[in-house]
Design a binder for these strands. Structure first.
Length: 432
RNA sequence: GGAGGAUUGGCCGAGCGGCCUAAGGCGCACGAUUGGAAAUCGUGUUGGGGCAACACCCCUCACGGGUUCGAAUCCCGUAUCCUCCGCCA
C-alpha cells in the first residue's frame, strides 16, 4: 500500500511509473480524497477538544457549588457537542474508507530498470548458467518418466481430489523430502536463514497485509469453521512476511532472513488449460520460500543477495537455468522489481519459471505495519523481499528431465544422495 | 463444549467515575560528575494522526460497542493467555 502523501508528492512521476504497469492513477481524485480525510479529521479533533473542555467545566461547576440549573445548562451544551462529534466522526470514517479502498488496489511502483512491456516476452535475459544437456535420444517428460517408474500417480490424485493434484510414491516421495531438506540445509547452514514452521491457514487480515487481498481473492482457497474464516496460504511468503506485522524492529537486527518449507494452495483461476500436464501447475505444491526484511535503502542490494541464494540451489543440483528481469507490466502487485529464474525443461525445449525473486520495497511493510527503530529511537522504514528457494515439484520435474538416461533411469544430483538415501532411480522404480 | 481467572507504556507494577497530561521501579537514551569506568544526580523515554511546524490539538490502558457532561476505572460482546473438567491427534 502506498502512502497517499508520498504518492501525491511524486505526482506526475507516480502517474508515469504506474502507467508502465497499466494502472491509470487518478491524481486529482487521490488529492481530493486525501484532503477530504484531512479536513474531516481536523474538524473532529476541534470538536473533541471543545468537548473535553466542556466536560471539565461541568466538573468544576459542580464542585464549586454552582446551582443545579447552571450545571444542567453546561451538561446540555456538552451533550450537543457530542451529537456534532458523532456526525463529524461518520464523515471521517467515510473519508478514510474511500481513501483506503483506493490505496489498497494501487499496485507498487515499478523500478525504472524493470523493462517496458506487460508480458513474459518483454522480459530481459540477465544470464544463462549451465549447459542444457544434449541427449542422444528423445528425452521424455517428467510425467512419462515418473509414471513409468511408479513414483508419480496423477490418475489416483484425480480420483481423490480432481484436476491439478499429484501423488508422489516411494522414491518419488522420498525425493521430494530430500530436495526440501537439501534446500533448507543450504539456506539455514550456508546462507544464514532462520527456519520456520508457520500456520498454513491465516486470517483475511494477514492476507491483506501481504497484498493477496482484497484484489486477488479468487486466487485463494478459503475455509473456516463456525463463524471463523481462514485462507490457505498460497506461499510461505504470507506467514513469514506477516510475522512482524505491526511491529517495530530494532534496526540492528536487520536484515532478517527467514525460510520455510510449506505446502502452497492456489486456485489457479484464470489458468485453465495452461500447464495441465504434470506437476508444473497444481492446486497444492510444496515450496521452500525465502523472505528478507531489511532497511528500505538496502532492498536493491538485498535482492541480488537473495537471488544468489536461489541460484545456488540450481548450481548445486547442476541444473541448467537462466535469469530474467521481468517487464514492469508483468510483475506481481507487490513488486517493484522481480527476477525470475527459469530452469531448462528438455521435454518443452525451453526454460520454465522455477523461482521468482521480488523486491517489494516498503510497499508490503507499510501495508502490514512493519517498521524499524535504531538505538537512538529514530524510526525507519523497512523493505520486504521474497523469493522461491525453490519449489519442490518443479525442481523434481527438472531433475527427472535433465538427469534422465536412455534406459529410463534417473541419476540424482550428487548433493541429494545423502538426503534421499539413494543415487539412482531405475526404470522399474527401484533404487540404488 | 463447560467452569473460573487474567490482559495497563520496552519490561515489572499501582490505579477501581473528574486532580490519569497513568504513581513507583527496571531497562534504555542524552547530559553532569570522572583520568576512564562503576556508583550517583539530572533530563528524556508507547505508538498513531491533523498541521508548514520537535508549537498546538486529537486518538491510544487487549479489541469492539454501550452508560455518563466526564471512563484505564461501570455495563455488554469479542480475542488471546492461564487453571480445571470433557473430547481429541
Amino acid at each position: 500500500m502506498h502512502d497517499a502523501r508520498l504518492l501525491l508528492e511524486l505526482g506526475d512521476e507516480a502517474v508515469r511509473r504506474l502507467d508502465r504497469r497499466g494502472y491509470k492513477l487518478d491524481l486529482a481524485g487521490l488529492e481530493a480524497m486525501s484532503s477530504r480525510r484531512a479536513s474531516a479529521i481536523g474538524r473532529v479533533d476541534e470538536l473533541r477538544a471543545e468537548s473535553k473542555r466542556a466536560a471539565a467545566e461541568v466538573g468544576k461547576a459542580a464542585k464549586s457549588g454552582a446551582s443545579s440549573e447552571e450545571v444542567d445548562a453546561l451538561k446540555e451544551r456538552a451533550r450537543e457537542l457530542k451529537e456534532r462529534i458523532r456526525e463529524a466522526e461518520d464523515e471521517v470514517e467515510a473519508a478514510e474508507a474511500a481513501l483506503r479502498d483506493l490505496l489498497l488496489v494501487i499496485p507498487n511502483l515499478p523500478a525504472d530498470d524493470a523493462p517496458d512491456g506487460d508480458s513474459e516476452d518483454d522480459a530481459v535475459e540477465v544470464r544463462r548458467v549451465g549447459e542444457p544437456p544434449a541427449f542422444g535420444f528423445t528425452p521424455r517428460d517428467h510425467v512419462d518418466l515418473g509414471e513409468a517408474m511408479g513414483i508419480l500417480d496423477f490418475g489416483r490424485a484425480a480420483k481423490l481430489s480432481g484436476a491439478r493434484f499429484s501423488i508422489a510414491r516411494g522414491p518419488g516421495a522420498a525425493l521430494e523430502r530430500a530436495i526440501a531438506s537439501f534446500f533448507l540445509a543450504l539456506h539455514t547452514g550456508r546462507h544464514g536463514y532462520t527456519e520456520f514452521s508457520p500456520p498454513y491457514l491465516v486470517t483475511g487480515q494477514t492476507m491483506t497485509g501481504t497484498g493477496q487481498l482484497p484484489k486477488f481473492e479468487e486466487d485463494l482457497f478459503r475455509t473456516g469453521t463456525g463463524d471463523r474464516d481462514l485462507y490457505l496460504i498460497p506461499t510461505a511468503e504470507v506467514p513469514l512476511t506477516a510475522l512482524h506485522a505491526d511491529e517495530i524492529l530494532p534496526a540492528e537486527t536487520l536484515p532478517l532472513a527467514y525460510t520455510s518449507w510449506t505446502p502452497c494452495f492456489r486456485s489457479e483461476a484464470g489458468s485453465y488449460g495452461r500447464d495441465t500436464r504434470g506437476i508444473l501447475r497444481l492446486h497444492q505444491f510444496s515450496k521452500v520460500e525465502l523472505v528478507r526484511i531489511c532497511a528500505a535503502e538496502e532492498s536493491r542490494r538485498e535482492l541480488e543477495v537473495m537471488l544468489g541464494h536461489a541460484e545456488t540451489c540450481l548450481q548445486e543440483l547442476g541444473l541448467a537455468y537462466r535469469v530474467i528481469r521481468l517487464a514492469a507490466g508483468d510483475m506481481g502487485f507487490n513488486a517493484q522489481l522481480t527476477y525470475d529464474i527459469e530452469v531448462w525443461l528438455p521435454s518443452q525445449d525451453t526454460y520454465r519459471e522455477i523461482s521468482s525473486c521480488s523486491d517489494c520495497g516498503t510497499f508490503q511493510a507499510r501495508r502490514s505495519g512493519i517498521r524499524s527503530k535504531d538505538a537512538h529511537g529514530g524510526r525507519g522504514q523497512v523493505a520486504t523481499l521474497n523469493g522461491s528457494g525453490l519449489p519442490i515439484g518443479r525442481t523434481m520435474a527438472a531433475i527427472l528431465e535433465q538427469c534422465q538416461e536412455q534406459d529410463g533411469s534417473v541419476t540424482l544430483p550428487e548433493v541429494l544422495a545423502p538426503y534421499a538415501g539413494f543415487r539412482r532411480i531405475l526404470a522399474d522404480g527401484t533404487t540404488e
